[in-house]
Simulated scan of single mutants.
Amino acid sequence: MIRNSELSGIANVIFAGLMSVAMAAIIKIVTRTLSPLEVVVLRSLISAPLLFFIVPRHSRLNFRAYVSKEHFLRSALGYGGFAAFATCSSKLPLTLASSISYTSPIYCMLLSTLLLKETHGFATGSAATMGFLGALIINQPGLADLDIWVVVGLVGAILDSLAILMVRRLANTAGPGQMSLSFMLWSSVIGFPIAIPVWVWPSPADWALLLLLAIVAVLAQVALVSGYARVRLSRAAPFDFVRLPACLAIDVLCFDTTPTLAMWLGSGLIFFGASVALVGANMHK
């Protein structure tokens, strides 16, 4: 039977994915008036104070941990991945940008095999394959017209998978809150100089959206770090694909996307793959 800690980790990964979908929708709206790079750094600047009060006091003031090279590397990779995703979300249809970003579970599985020596069961491999095929089915027409933003999105997905790998490495020495706070602090430091050339002062409506984005980002970060700290990359990665059908639903409801047969088939394949992964995880320790 699947362990309670792993089940909790999978639930956290799924919840983080749903929060990522909410972030993508907010980014799509707020980048109509603000640069994606400015949105990324403001998300971090607003999120950091919120996280400061979530982190346990003994970890909150452990400044030596925040300046370690492991925390910096994880934050730099995560910043690069999120900046690429935010930029693609502002330039491409939301579902297409998300499907490109959500190829990261495939890279996570490959990295877990190569670097962490994790093994993949038949159910996990099948689920990841079905998730990837589902993403291709949903976006086959859009991916046919490759442009620079598709490449940016793919690079961002690789950076995201490397950041998740670093989460696994840091899990034994840092808690979820501390890792999340470190990420937001470093993202602010890295992103602020990059955003200055395109800076535009946000309107009151933009500030409201940015605050909402920061709150959702805090929930997503803590859940993501908690999830991947408790469960193997190979076991959790297939559940990341559940984000894509959720993103498709947002696209349909909020951005006037008309669902096609391919979208329904792809979403069904993704959900079926996630079910296979859950059943497989439940059958093996």
Rank of each mutant, 00 (worst) to 15 (best):
A16R: 08
A144S: 12
G280T: 02
I54N: 00
G80K: 03
P141Y: 00
P238Q: 14
I29Q: 08
L224Q: 01
F132W: 10
S68F: 05
A217R: 03
A83Y: 03
S101H: 15
P259C: 11
R243N: 13
F255Q: 02
S20K: 07
I46M: 09
A274Y: 09
V276T: 05
R3T: 15
L96N: 11
L181E: 00
F192I: 14
R230A: 12
L278N: 10
P197Y: 04
L115C: 06
S182L: 04
I158L: 15
R32W: 07
M179P: 00
R43T: 05
Q221Y: 05
S8R: 13
E6P: 00
A123Y: 03
V13A: 07
V150F: 10
S59F: 09
I10W: 01
P36S: 00
D160R: 13
L96D: 12
Y102E: 09
C88L: 15
A86V: 11
Q221I: 08
P197R: 05
L265H: 02
V189F: 03
V189I: 10
P193T: 02
V189A: 12
L209A: 11
L42S: 04
E6Q: 06
N172C: 12
V150W: 13
V216A: 00
I196H: 01
T257G: 10
L211Y: 04
P202E: 00
S275H: 10
P238D: 09
S234D: 06
S68N: 07
G268F: 08
V216R: 01
G266K: 04
L61V: 14
V276D: 00
L34Q: 15
M23Q: 14
P245R: 11
F271K: 13
D160H: 13
F72A: 14
F72N: 09
A16H: 06
S47T: 11
I14G: 04
L146C: 04
N139Y: 02
R32C: 10
L61F: 11
I26P: 06
Y102A: 11
L209V: 10
P93H: 07
S20P: 03
A128N: 13
A144P: 08
I148N: 14
D206Y: 14
V200H: 06
V155C: 09
